[in-house]
Amino acid sequence: MTATASAHTVKNTTAETAKLRGNRRSSSHSKVQSISLALIIPVIIAVVWEVAGRAGWIADGLFPPLSVCVAAFVDWVSGIGLFTSDFTPSEAYSTTWLAHVGASVGRVLMGFVLGSVLAIVFGILAGISWHAKRMIDPTINAIRPISVTGWVPIALIIFGIGDQPAVFLTALATFFPVYVNTLSGVQRVDRGLIRAGRMLGAPQYKVVMSIVLPAASPNIITGLRVSLGIAWTTVVVAEILGAKSGVGYVLIDSYNQFRFDYVIAAMATLGICGIVTDKLLQWIFADALRWSDN
């Protein structure tokens, strides 16, 4: 009996081990397949871009091939000139990538924080108080449809050229999505929880901080993520129209100099910055989202 039981145990263990190995292989194969599928379209675009750029099929030959754009990006970042006969380094941009990215990040950060904090405060007030909503909401909804570009002349008149108009426009663009999502999140909070908190003697600020804000956090974080993308779009517009530094400035300046390779490098930089800051935002609020899911 003992020998039979031991043999049966060994057999089960072997089967489980084989099953685990099979699952690992399947998972590994699935990841490889997923990555391969995700690379198909980028590879096709890269090949077509390189061929079309070298053949001069786009914009009468003014549009550079991918290899030249990569060389421009590397030169902009590090000053290292990659071997390609079609690329000429620019002394105006070489090794200035970090300075320009830092200028843009600073403007985005200041505008994003300012706009988000104000939006969350006003959204919570409008969500928990009928009187506050009647006072705040109509004015915000009247201003919200106005495009950020429509505010550019006003920003330049009031703040002039420099960081201030960019920060103002970024804060303005950030405000509305965060406000709308915060208001929606607060209005969906279970009113029974709020009443229970008040019945237990919790003051209003405690109810807001311990019940309302955590319960509304998924909506608020969604608004923050949407606003962060809009903030990067807005800061580029502001830098194009009224700044002497930043990724947006490099984009328009290189365009005016017919350096379309650096234009593409600036666009790629904006995409990288947007992805990195979005992932950073998700990491910062990961605990809040886990709490909400539970």
Rank of each mutant, 00 (worst) to 15 (best):
I124N: 04
K279F: 11
I136C: 05
E239H: 09
D293S: 14
C69T: 01
S28T: 08
N219C: 06
L281Q: 04
T139E: 01
R24Q: 12
F168N: 00
D190H: 12
V51P: 13
I58H: 13
A288M: 01
L37G: 06
V108T: 10
L270E: 05
V189H: 07
K133T: 00
V43P: 12
A202G: 03
G123M: 04
L172Y: 15
L289G: 01
S254M: 07
G53A: 08
I230F: 14
R144P: 15
N141E: 09
L241G: 07
L251E: 15
T170P: 14
D287Q: 08
G271L: 03
A46Q: 06
Q187I: 04
A155K: 14
A268Q: 04
T2R: 13
L213H: 02
T170F: 12
G229L: 05
I143N: 02
Y179F: 13
P89N: 01
Q33G: 01
F175L: 01
L200R: 03
A38V: 08
V237Q: 09
F112I: 00
S90R: 02
Q257G: 14
V113R: 03
S26K: 12
Q282P: 00
S34Q: 11
V121E: 11
F285Q: 00
V121Q: 10
A243N: 12
L37S: 08
R24D: 09
I143Y: 09
S36L: 09
L251V: 12
I230L: 14
V47R: 08
G115Y: 14
T84N: 13
